[in-house]
Nucleic acid binder design. Sequence first.
DNA 1: CGCTTAAAGCAATTATCGTTGCGTTAGGAG
DNA 2: CTCCTAACGCAACGATAATTGCTTTAAGCG
Lengths: 181, 181
Amino acid sequence: MPEKRTGGRSAAVLAQIRTAVEDLVRERGAERVTIPMVAERAGVNPTSIYRRWGDLPTMLNDIATYRLDPARPLPDTGELRADLVAWAGEIVEHYAKPVNAALLRGGAASAGETESDCLRNRRAEAVVLASRSGAPFAADDIVDLVVAPIIYRVIFLPWTLTDPGLAERCVDRLLATGRAA
Amino acid sequence: MPEKRTGGRSAAVLAQIRTAVEDLVRERGAERVTIPMVAERAGVNPTSIYRRWGDLPTMLNDIATYRLDPARPLPDTGELRADLVAWAGEIVEHYAKPVNAALLRGGAASAGETESDCLRNRRAEAVVLASRSGAPFAADDIVDLVVAPIIYRVIFLPWTLTDPGLAERCVDRLLATGRAA
DNA sequence: CGCTTAAAGCAATTATCGTTGCGTTAGGAG
DNA sequence: CTCCTAACGCAACGATAATTGCTTTAAGCG
């Protein structure tokens, strides 16, 4: 049995590295971060990082993936629109934090080969929400009409994220399209 | 008169650098490209690049900006839907090329401070198209409903760009929303 | 509680990046 | 054609990133 060692010191090191990455990425932006830098901030030897991930983009992707809530409960008020608004609001709120936005941008740079875990999760959530209410629209519609506009703003127009009506507007457009179809 | 020297050798060097960047970015992804690398591929001295752009993100942004047609004529068939579909189709087609997608991702990494020229142009085009037909919807709607879904797919789901109905679907959603409002 | 060995630390080495000063080439204006 | 100088090439340097061999620590298993 291949023994793997995920706990104890390794876990501690990993945690230190994670917070170091998050701090640095927030302070300087994903691309002005280097591995030795992270190592120093984390109080860890650079070698450990090189050996574990090999490469900075790889590491960033991994950290970014972890960052988003693995299995949080989805909103379930019984009313579809309210659920969707709450869900979209969570996404907006999450990426309104500069750390998460920076990590997303960093991840975007090396995305494109396989769908990043990051967004696959969102897609899955969308499917759950859609099917729960008898699926008046496809998961793709949710992605196109809610996720995409939000993520686009996060990456390219971050200062528009404070707009309080954003989530609602996206959801209403989605519902309108669902009705029309 | 500030003499500027845009032709001859400088132009040749620039062209070599451009194709080198495009090749490398396509081959390895924007994050794994370095300036010395580009210089070698271009058969040019690294110093020239450092002096011209200063650093890599700046250079990538500049190349990417150039890449998208600076002042091409917008489609004008007289019919709104056709114009929009053609316009959206152009964007899809443009970013369906791996080079352009990779450059966009590279730009995304350093975006967020100021709106990248890249997307500002698109926004401007959207305004023109909207106002031409008596503006049944805001520029923001075009961005949210057409640009965002496309760009989102370019970055995170590039393999879905081959979908031939994408542009039309986005435009139709936009028109539906316009009617509803 | 020991054994085994995965993972972290350490140190020395190599590779690579980015900078700078200076000489060379050639674009553009007169 | 000639002059001026912008832009490129070259070479040397300092700084930092990445690699590698070896040692040390401690996770997971019996």
